[in-house]
Design a protein around this nucleic acid. Structure first.
Length: 199
DNA sequence: TATTGGATCGCC
DNA sequence: GCGATCCAATAG
């Protein structure tokens, strides 16, 4: 249960992965230090027809990893400042990924506060750019593995059974994709949690 | 080679 | 509401 999720897990349909990741632990290992956050909010990006996805239309150097096999990290720089973390899903050739949008800080909170230069728990990891800053995630992790022995960033289950309610929403910040794709309810989150990203 | 705009955030 | 600040994507 507290094992790293496997590549088989990430190979499932993207919407199932997006939901199943809620409540699980994202773990960043830096030397002996572990930074851990519980996943609170995710979004699915689904196939080359999804106009909101970086993999829409054509295959390029940046989105190439989304066309690969499941269980690899896709980390990109947004607005020249922040990183965003995704994990690739489904099968090779079908470009899809889940964006990790928010965490609840669990372990290594002091380090997260320093990296973020913020002290409010509700502001440490409550957004895709914030959580990357708090867990020291940047493009050096792009295209690396989320499974197996040699990773410094992975997701694992918890012992406790899930006791939360799940909500769904539109994906955030994808209005340019046009109404059809922007309206898909492909975001999901844990209800009544202080750390969901704001809108 | 040049231009444009983005799956965000924090301050005004 | 708006600017920051880099780089991928696209146009020329």
């Amino acid at each position: 249960m507290k094992q790293k999720l496997t590549r088989q897990f990430y190979s499932q349909p993207t919407l199932e992965v997006a939901h199943a990741l809620l409540g699980k632990y994202l773990v960043r290992q830096i030397g002996q230090q572990k930074l851990i956050g519980q996943i609170i909010e995710t979004e699915a990006y689904l196939g080359h027809q999804d106009k909101a996805s970086h993999a829409f239309g054509k295959r390029t150097a940046r989105n190439e990893i989304m066309f690969g096999s499941a269980g690899f990290w896709y980390v990109y720089l947004i607005y020249g400042i922040f990183s965003c973390l995704n994990v690739v899903t489904q099968k090779k050739g079908f470009p899809s990924a889940v964006l990790i949008r928010a965490l609840e800080p669990i372990e290594g909170i002091g380090v997260m506060k320093r990296l973020r230069r913020k002290s409010d728990l509700g502001d440490l990891t409550s957004g895709p750019g914030k959580l990357c800053q708090a867990l020291k995630i940047d493009r050096t992790l792009n295209r690396t593995k989320a499974f197996g022995r040699d990773c410094s960033l992975w997701i694992q289950g918890r012992k406790e059974p899930n006791d939360f309610k799940i909500g769904t929403s539109k994906r955030i910040g994808v209005g340019c994709a046009g109404p059809y794709w922007a309206r898909r309810q492909w975001g999901c989150f844990i209800r009544d949690n202080q750390c969901v990203s704001k809108r």
